[in-house]
Computed example of a mutant assay.
Amino acid sequence: MRRQVMAVTAAVVVALSLTACNGGSSGSATPPPFTPSSVPPASSTTPSEHPGSDGAVEAYRQFIAATDAMGRSGGADVTGLRKYSSGTMLAAELNQAATFKGRKWRSVGQQKVVRAKVLTTGTPGPDGAVNEVVVEACVDSSQAITTGPDGKPVRPANAPTQLVDQMKMVRVAGAWTANYPHSRKPGKC
């Protein structure tokens, strides 16, 4: 069963990555390194709406930026993925990085988190801390383009460029990480 979950998750991640391609072409410039400060500040959720969830939305945005950095590097830069994902998502994203390397894919541009909020919070533990939340976000990948070694886009013509993502975020060593996709489906931002 665990292998099936991993395979499904990997397929979802590949599909999400391919939706980041919109038919443009890529240049040969060296991709910039992952920089958390390149992500716009977030929050459409105030701490009082979901006590204990402070920082989860920002960590989700950083996770999306890390997937962009991995794509721009052709799968070489996984630093941000290791920082902002864990469990099933980390395994799936590292698999995706290997796919980019193996197929010599590169991405240009970046995904945009149009809106994001904490949808639900887990039950506080004995210490009162919430260690699990679900973040719902609408991600526009129309400006992120993945190309093959020939410079041609790899995204299928009918692939959506906007997704509604519900991601389980968990605290690992005191920091929020993307852990498991609850739901990823085409949507409108």
Rank of each mutant, 00 (worst) to 15 (best):
A157Q: 10
D54F: 02
S85M: 05
Y84M: 06
R72W: 13
D127T: 12
P33D: 07
T99Y: 06
R106C: 01
I64C: 09
V118A: 03
S43P: 03
D77N: 08
E58A: 14
V135W: 08
P149S: 13
L81S: 01
S142T: 10
N131C: 00
V133C: 06
A42R: 08
T46D: 07
A98G: 12
L90E: 15
Q143T: 11
P153H: 00
G128R: 08
W105A: 00
A65H: 08
N95W: 09
P47A: 09
G125T: 14
A29G: 08
T88D: 11
Q96C: 02
A42S: 12
A69R: 08
T147A: 13
S73N: 06
G75L: 03
S43E: 12
N158I: 11
S141H: 06
T120K: 13
A56V: 06
G52D: 04
I64M: 12
S53L: 02
A92N: 04
T120N: 08
M89P: 03
R115D: 15
F34E: 01
S85N: 04
K152C: 02
K101G: 09
T35S: 14
V154D: 00
V133G: 05
R72C: 11
A76H: 12
G75Y: 04
A116N: 07
A157S: 13
F34P: 00
L94A: 06
V139H: 13
A98R: 11
K83A: 15
G148W: 00
E58S: 15
V113I: 09
G122E: 06
V118T: 06
T121S: 15
G148C: 01
R72V: 03
G128Q: 07
T88H: 05
I64F: 07
K83P: 02
F63T: 07
Q143Y: 05
G74K: 03
D150M: 03
P32S: 10
T147Q: 08
T35G: 14
Q110W: 05
G74N: 05
S141I: 03
A97V: 03
A137G: 14
T121Y: 00
G151S: 03
R72A: 14
S73W: 04
P124N: 05
L90W: 00
R106G: 01
V135H: 09
P160F: 09
I145E: 10
V139I: 15
F34H: 12
K101A: 13
P41S: 13
T123Q: 14
V108T: 13
S85T: 08
G102V: 05
F34V: 02
G71Y: 01
K152H: 10
G80Q: 04
R115T: 14
V118E: 01
S142N: 09
V135Q: 08
R61L: 13
G71S: 12
F34G: 04
E49N: 01
K83Q: 15
M89F: 04
